[in-house]
Design a binder for these strands. Structure first.
Length: 355
DNA sequence: CTTCTAACA
DNA sequence: TGTTAGTA
C-alpha cells in the first residue's frame, strides 16, 4: 500500500468536497468533532480520515442529531446505535403525531372558515401552539431517554473526589434520599429501597448498574449544591439538607407508610386531573412545573386513553407506596387504571403516574 | 489570492 | 452559520 500517497485538502477544497462551509469546518473543529493537522503556517489540512468523519457528521446531522449528540457518538462514548435508532424513531413518531393533531386543528378551523364563522386570534394562537410546541421537547426527551439508557463504562474516583458527596438531599416533592460512603464506595439510598451502588463515569457523575438511572452532582465554587437524579428522559434536582431535617422527613414518611392512609387532597386531585384531561381546553395549573411540561406533552395521548376508558365510576385507595405516593385504582366503564399521586410542599401535584 | 483568528449579526 | 476586518 502506498504510504505517502494520501491527499491533503485545504479548507476550501475540503469544504467543496463535503458540501460544508469553511465556517462549519472550523465550528466542528472547535466542538472537537474533527482535528485536522496544520502546516507550519497554521493552514488546516484535511486527510482521508477527516473527510470520512465529516461525511458521518453530515449524515448524523441530517438524521436530526445535534452537534453535541454527534460529538458524544463519535467520541466512542456511545456504542449502541440500535437504541439510538429506536429513540430517533420515537422522536419522529412524536413529530408525526404532532403534525396530525396540527392538521386536525387546521381542518376544524377551515370548516368554520368555510361556513363563514369567525376565527379569533386566540384560535390561531392555539393552532400555532399545537404546531410548534411539543416536537422539540419530545425529541429532546427522546434523546435524553436514550442518553440515560446507553451503556456506560465505570471509572474509579479517588476518595477525595467522593468525600463531600455524602449527605442527605431533598427533592421538590419533599422526598428525602441519602448518599453514603460504604467502604469507600458511594451509595444512593432512596427511602424504602435497598441502597444502590453508584458507579462513577466521571467526577460528580454516576450511574446505577442495570437501571437507566444516573445521579450527578452540581457544584458552585467547588461546593456541592445539588444532586440530580436522571431518569425517564428527565432530571429531578435535590438540594442538600441537614441530618435533622432529613431524619424528620424520613420518620414522617415511615409513619405514612405504616398508617397507609391517603392524604386528604389525593382523591379530589386525581378526579380533577381526569376531568381536566377530558376537557377540550386542559388546564394544568395545579401541576408542579416539571410535571406540567410532561402533561402538556402527553395531553393528546392521555385524552385518547381516558376517552377510550369512558366515564370514571369509582376511585379506590389501595396503598401508600415506598416513596410516599398515594396509589389508587380508578375504575372506568371500559377498564381500570392504577394511579399514583404525590404532592410538592407547595401543595401542587408533583408526581402522577397512570399504569 | 487564500487562510488565519476574533468578534459581531 | 454567515460576514467582516486585519494579518501572514
Amino acid at each position: 500500500m502506498g504510504k505517502d500517497t494520501e491527499e491533503w485538502l485545504t479548507a476550501q477544497q475540503c469544504a467543496t468536497r463535503t458540501g460544508l462551509s469553511i465556517r462549519a469546518l472550523r465550528l466542528y473543529e472547535q466542538r472537537g468533532l474533527i482535528s485536522p493537522r496544520r502546516t507550519t503556517k497554521d493552514w488546516r489540512l484535511y486527510g482521508r480520515s477527516e473527510i470520512e468523519r465529516l461525511h458521518e457528521i453530515v449524515a448524523l446531522k441530517a438524521f436530526g442529531l445535534s452537534l453535541k449528540d454527534i460529538g458524544a457518538l463519535l467520541s466512542g462514548q456511545v456504542t449502541d446505535l440500535g437504541r439510538a435508532l429506536d429513540t430517533q424513531r420515537h422522536a419522529l413518531e412524536a413529530r408525526l403525531r404532532q403534525a396530525e393533531t396540527g392538521l386536525r386543528a387546521i381542518d376544524v378551523l377551515r370548516q368554520r372558515f368555510d361556513k363563514g364563522e369567525s376565527i379569533s386570534t386566540e384560535d390561531l394562537l392555539g393552532l400555532i401552539h399545537t404546531m410548534e410546541g411539543a416536537p422539540e421537547t419530545e425529541a429532546a426527551t427522546g434523546w435524553a431517554r436514550y442518553e440515560q439508557a446507553r451503556p456506560r463504562v465505570a471509572t474509579s474516583l479517588s476518595h477525595n473526589q467522593m468525600a463531600d458527596l455524602e449527605g442527605a438531599w431533598q427533592f421538590a416533592d419533599g422526598l428525602v434520599v441519602r448518599t453514603k460512603l460504604v467502604e469507600g464506595k458511594l451509595h444512593f439510598c432512596p427511602p424504602g429501597q435497598p441502597a444502590y451502588r453508584l458507579w462513577a463515569e466521571a467526577p460528580d457523575r454516576f450511574f446505577i448498574k442495570g437501571l437507566p438511572v444516573q445521579v450527578s452532582f452540581t457544584r458552585r465554587e467547588g461546593a456541592v449544591v445539588g444532586l440530580n437524579h436522571h431518569q425517564d428522559g428527565g432530571v429531578e434536582t435535590a438540594v442538600p439538607i441537614d441530618s435533622a431535617s432529613a431524619a424528620l422527613a424520613e420518620t414522617t414518611l415511615a409513619q405514612r407508610i405504616t398508617e397507609q392512609q391517603p392524604l386528604a387532597a389525593s382523591a379530589a386531585a386525581i378526579r380533577g386531573v381526569i376531568a381536566t384531561h377530558g376537557a377540550a381546553d386542559p388546564d394544568f395549573d395545579n401541576l408542579a412545573p416539571a410535571l406540567k411540561r410532561l402533561a402538556e406533552e402527553q395531553r393528546d395521548h392521555m385524552a385518547a386513553v381516558l376517552a377510550s376508558l369512558g366515564p370514571l365510576q369509582s376511585l379506590d385507595f389501595t396503598r401508600v407506596s415506598d416513596t410516599g405516593l398515594d396509589i389508587f385504582i380508578a375504575n372506568f366503564a371500559q377498564g381500570r387504571l392504577e394511579i399514583g399521586i404525590g404532592f410538592a410542599p407547595s401543595g401542587k401535584i408533583s408526581t402522577l403516574y397512570f399504569t
